[in-house]
Design a protein around this nucleic acid. Structure first.
Lengths: 206, 206
DNA sequence: TTCTGTGAATAGGTTCACAGCT
DNA sequence: AGCTGTGAACCTATTCACAGAA
């Protein structure tokens, strides 16, 4: 299969949300134009995005809402739940552990690690915070799919090295640093201060 | 000035971080090649990014670290601090209010609003949580530069409408919804579940 | 007639490659 | 010799436009 761009994948995830809303409302079909309107794109973009994976619509009619939802879920690998490990039980880690959106979307946080002895052992959201020194061995016993890194910047790279050692192939990083990983490991970094800086740029250049 | 792409702006913000590190270490000059290595790009990319704004280097030598840092700070509008309002005092709001990275970078959260009467009045990080019904009038009395929206999805659009009414031109949104705003208002949405979904896609298609 | 699927055209961002300072 | 600044080439994503199925 041809290499799919990140923007296409993100839009697919967005379409899936709209399809789920439509499905909840009992809608049976939806057109590329309507998906486009909901997602802030164009109908051609929607059709092109889908066309990379097959042809799922009916000309003159549009797409079957449940069929397309299930197809996109399959493309994104969301038919099954994902086991997630959270590293870093600070403020951000806490917020992420509680965050409903993850669970709703099938991302289940099933272990939490921290380095701070004062935090280790504490029950958090039904989960006991573990010592980060056990990270590798615990993950080997009980593999997970995705890791979320919410440590301070200084600790992030060494945590990531351990995660990679333990075989983790997908990492969502909230620490404000560029992480180096082998090419078969996928990292997404969410850098919140950097987002504010792009807003500052927009304000300064109007 | 030519329209600058979002990717260029984000890279500039990244270069600025590296320059600050270099400056702290007493480095005097730096080459595009080194900035590229630190930022995971190419030297041509670095030079091209900078070239949109002028020519700041010396051929054969590289860039003056402090001069380039200050120039990029100016481009991004970071010479002055920014006043930030946070709307939504839930888990995520709490984490954001405490987040060091914002303050370090000159983004000062100076008001917090929530809708929940149980939260209103509570002191949070030295700030009293205000009633969201006062949002518009408080912002008119005391304008801010940037708003951070950390409410549930259902509340986000109406909060944003109030912010827009109150004259806010830049919004960082953590609610998992597409927001509609007038064209002169800049919105950046951080959708964390969506980031996990792109990781799920990567795992499913290896 | 309506709306999809898709090649072709366009736009935009990245990389190349080299002339020109220092 | 070393490294910048930049037009040109390249590549990738988006938009156009239309043939074809319902």
């Amino acid at each position: 299969m041809r290499r799919i761009s990140d923007s296409t994948v993100r839009r697919l995830a967005a379409y899936l949300r709209f399809l789920e809303h439509a499905e909840a409302e009992g809608r049976v079909t939806i057109s590329s134009g309507e998906l486009a309107r909901l997602g802030g794109t164009t109908s051609a973009q929607v059709r092109k995005d889908l066309s990379f994976f097959g042809s799922f619509g009916k000309r003159g009619l549009g797409y079957s809402v449940p069929a397309l939802a299930s197809k996109i879920g399959e493309i994104l690998g969301l038919q099954r739940a994902h086991r997630v490990v959270l590293v870093g039980a600070g403020n951000m880690g806490g917020a992420l552990a509680q965050y409903r959106g993850f669970h709703q979307r099938g991302f289940h946080i099933s272990m939490i690690f921290d380095q701070d002895p004062k935090k280790v052992g504490v029950r958090w959201n039904g989960l006991q915070v573990r010592d980060v020194r056990q990270l590798e061995s615990d993950l080997r016993k009980d593999p997970i799919d995705i890791a979320i890194v919410a440590t301070p910047a200084e600790a992030a790279q060494q945590v990531v090295d351990k995660l990679v050692q333990a075989g983790v192939k997908a990492i969502l990083n909230f620490a404000p640093v560029r992480l180096s990983v082998p090419p078969d490991v996928e990292v997404k970094t969410v850098n919140m201060a950097l987002e504010l800086e792009t807003l500052s740029y927009a304000l300064a250049n109007r």
